[in-house]
Computed example of a mutant assay.
Amino acid sequence: IRYWSPAAAAITGLKADDLVGRQAAMALPGWGDLLDGVPVSAQPGPAARDATLPLELGDRELWISVSGVQFDDGVVYAFRNLTEERALDALKSEFVATVSHELRTPLAAIYGCAQTLRRPDTQLDSRTHERLLEVISQECERLTRIIGDVLLANQLDAEQLRIEEEKFFVGELVTEVVEEMHASLEAHERIPIAVSMPENLGHLLGDADKIRQILLNLVDNAVKYSPEGGRIEIAVERQERGLRIAVRDQGLGIPHAEQQRIFGKFYRVDPNLTRGVGGTGLGLYICRELARHMDGRVSVMSKEGEGSTFVLDLPLAVARREEGAGVASGAD
């Protein structure tokens, strides 16, 4: 190696002083393994297409786009780091596969019900007829939620989300979320959802729709990962600087090493669906970003096998206090 540029040092983390004057195969771990795949032009000018190859550097792997030009006294290699691009491409591929699966399932149900309803040779009683229509309706709502999550995630990425400020009552918002979740679970075993909140919450100022979306996602996530016979608890309390809502479940729990990764885009604790838990992997990402846009945060406390608690903290102002406006309730 006769020259090692600052850019090469930044990409690899290897200093020029440690490399210049040494044989490349000895100084650069993994260089010898990829050398045969690097295109080398006979003279300067339009170069051959760069090769994208992995470069092993100890316990690290870099994906580089590399090509070379032959000179009388050696070869000049030029390369750039594509590691992040490769990771993003892999993430996109996984997302496309996940969304395709999530869309295919409700579409198959809708198609099957519609075909049954259309069959002229089958007489359906009124109960079966209504049940098939109900399945179509539920699966259409599921499709709407999936597409809505994808579009919302795109808005969040583009920083195009607009936060509104309006007066709302927290008790009503939480009750609506619980009722909506129970309605979506009518075809399955209903999981008890208990709600506790003080009587003096009053009306707050904030974006009720965004808060509702966060809470829906957190409760839906708790339902997905709750075992049969499990229980979900929603606890609401006023804090000195705003509002705190905690959603607790008795589900699978999250390994400590994954507790920050779960808020990443497309990330799922069970990506191979070995536990039968689906989803696009956007729910917690949307929760985190919506909270961030409202100057709040979402955090998690969990122990594997013992359930999880997701906490939403928002700096909401009090609109006015009305005596007797708050409620304490329990919904099963």
Rank of each mutant, 00 (worst) to 15 (best):
I1D: 05
W4Q: 08
S5C: 06
I11V: 11
I11T: 11
I11W: 09
I11G: 05
G13E: 08
K15Q: 15
D17Y: 03
D18F: 11
R22D: 07
Q23C: 11
A24I: 14
L28Y: 04
L34T: 06
V38S: 01
Q43M: 13
P44N: 05
G45E: 01
P46D: 14
R49G: 12
A51L: 06
T52S: 10
L53I: 02
I64W: 01
V66Q: 07
S67R: 12
V69W: 07
Q70D: 10
D72Y: 03
D72T: 08
D72H: 12
V76N: 11
Y77L: 08
R80G: 08
N81C: 05
T83W: 02
T83S: 10
E84D: 05
E84Y: 03
A87C: 06
S93E: 15
S93G: 14
V96T: 13
H101R: 15
P106K: 09
A109D: 15
I110P: 05
A114W: 12
R118D: 13
D121G: 09
Q123G: 15
L124M: 15
L124N: 12
R131A: 15
S137N: 11
S137V: 12
C140Q: 13
R142L: 05
L143Y: 07
I146Y: 10
D149I: 09
V150C: 12
L151R: 15
L152V: 05
N154F: 11
A158Y: 11
A158M: 14
R162G: 00
E164Q: 12
F168T: 06
F169V: 11
F169D: 13
F169G: 14
L173A: 08
V174C: 01
E176S: 13
V177N: 04
E179H: 09
M181A: 11
L185Y: 03
H188C: 06
H188E: 02
P192G: 08
V195F: 07
M197I: 07
P198L: 10
E199L: 14
N200K: 15
L201M: 12
G202N: 09
H203T: 12
D207F: 01
D207N: 06
D209Y: 03
D209M: 03
R212G: 04
R212E: 09
L216F: 09
L218T: 08
D220H: 07
D220Q: 04
V223D: 04
V223N: 00
K224A: 08
R231C: 00
R231E: 00
A235M: 00
A235Q: 04
E240L: 04
G242T: 02
L243A: 01
I245R: 00
V247D: 05
L252D: 01
I254P: 03
A257G: 13
E258C: 09
I262M: 10
F266M: 12
F266R: 08
R268D: 02
V269T: 06
V277Y: 00
G283K: 05
Y285T: 01
Y285V: 09
I286Y: 03
C287I: 01
C287A: 01
L290R: 00
A291H: 03
G296V: 08
V298S: 02
G305S: 03
G305H: 07
T309C: 14
V311W: 04
L312P: 00
A317F: 09
V318E: 13
A319S: 12
A319I: 01
A319E: 10
R321V: 06
R321I: 04
E323T: 13
G324H: 05
A325H: 10
V327M: 09
G330D: 11
D332T: 08
